[in-house]
Structure formats: structure tokens, C-alpha cells
Simulated scan of single mutants.
Amino acid sequence: MALRIDHTTTSGTFSLDGQTFDVDNNAWVVGDDRECVVIDAPHDVAAILALVGDREVLAVLCTHAHDDHVRKAPELADAVGAPVFLHPDDMVLWNLTHPDRPPDRELADRQVVGVGGSGLQVLHTPGHAPGAVCLHSVDLGVVFTGDTLFAGGPGATGRSYSDFDVIVRSIRDRLLTLPDSTVVHPGHGESTTIGAVRPQFDEWVRRGY
């Protein structure tokens, strides 16, 4: 069966450092007609379940643990009977939202999460958050970047547990090494390609974004 990507956008809030903002988040489902994985679980379980349909959910994969990406992860995982995966370096952020419910399993750099006869490779890309990861599918020619890379630049680094120099290294060493044709599906906003963002990278670094 053919591997495919399903997508929805949900609306809610993001809170950190005593401030709260309205945000729209992308949620992505990758799989075939029988099974899938969910990438991020932001604000609306019903909207994600509509994408899943009657498929088996193998995992809920968190690109990082800011509350707008994981707020519904335990609820979604319980609804579909799947484990929540998170990189352990993001536990400090996870515990701000879910102090009494740890993730079920850890994500590790270079790990491959299998789905639909294919796989998503985990790329640890700290900077926006210490445990931020991107998920790369060679077969689909896409990378799910969470809040590490957007069409307009790198993820924000002005809040707790973030670092601009670190995110620059992550993008340069882990994402710009991918083929230019690789489609970038971020956690917010429109998709782009590695080829489209590559020429902008030096300018982002020069101005400190």
C-alpha cells in the first residue's frame, strides 16, 4: 500500500515563561491504509482522529515538548492505544505540561520509526528546545521539522531552554545536508523545501534572525 501524508491545522495557545500566545499548529499523520504514526498532538484530538480514521496508530511522535505540540499527546495516545515518543532531553519541558504522565518511550538520534513498510529517521536538532527532533522520510522525500525550521527561518530561540547558536548548527549540520528537493513540513505555517531555504541561511545567521 502507498505511503501518504495527511495534515490538519488546529488552533489553541502556547504558554512559556509566564506568557501565553494564540497559535495555529500543524499536525501530521504518516502511513498507509492500515497503519500510521501521528507527528505532534497539539490542540484537538478529534481533528487528528479524523485523519487517522480506522487505521492502527503505531506511535505519537513529539517533535519537542512545548505545550502547543504535546498538550493532547496523552489523551490521543490513550484514545488510540499507542505509545508517546519524546527525546529525553525535552523532559524538562514535558514536565511543565504533564508532570504526572511521562512519555512512554524515548526518541534517539538516528533511530528509525517504522510505518507502512517504510520508516522515519529521527534527527536530533536541538536549539528551539533541547530535545527537538526532525523526522526524515527518504521514501516520501520529506522532513517534518517541528519548530526547528520554517519557510521563513529557524525556530524561535528567545525563551527558556533555547539557544540560537545551537539551532543554527542543527539546521546547518542535520537539515541542509538533505537534498534540495526535500519538502519541509513544519509545526506551524506553510511547507517549503530545503532548496528554497538554503540560500537564506547565511543571512539568517548574519542578522541573528
Rank of each mutant, 00 (worst) to 15 (best):
E56R: 15
V57F: 11
L58A: 12
A59W: 11
V60M: 07
V60N: 13
V60H: 13
L61R: 04
C62L: 14
H64I: 04
A65E: 10
H66N: 15
H66M: 10
H66W: 14
D67E: 15
D68I: 08
H69Y: 14
V70P: 12
V70Y: 09
V70D: 13
V70L: 12
R71W: 13
K72A: 15
A73W: 07
E75R: 14
E75A: 15
L76S: 07
L76I: 13
A77K: 11
A77F: 12
A77S: 15
A77I: 09
D78L: 13
D78K: 13
A79G: 06
A79Y: 05
G81T: 10
G81L: 07
A82V: 10
A82R: 04
A82T: 08
V84H: 03
H87N: 14
H87T: 03
P88T: 11
P88D: 08
D89K: 14
D89S: 09
D89M: 06
M91R: 14
V92N: 01
V92L: 05
W94D: 06
W94H: 07
N95R: 15
N95A: 14
L96A: 12
T97K: 02
T97V: 09
T97G: 06
P99S: 11
P99V: 07
D100A: 12
P103Y: 06
P103V: 13
P103A: 06
P103L: 05
D104H: 12
R105L: 14
R105Q: 15
D109W: 01
Q111I: 00
Q111K: 00
Q111A: 10
Q111C: 00
Q111L: 06
V113Y: 00
V113K: 00
G114R: 09
G116M: 03
G116L: 04
G117A: 01
S118K: 06
S118P: 00
S118A: 07
G119E: 08
L120W: 02
V122F: 03
V122S: 03
L123S: 01
H124Y: 05
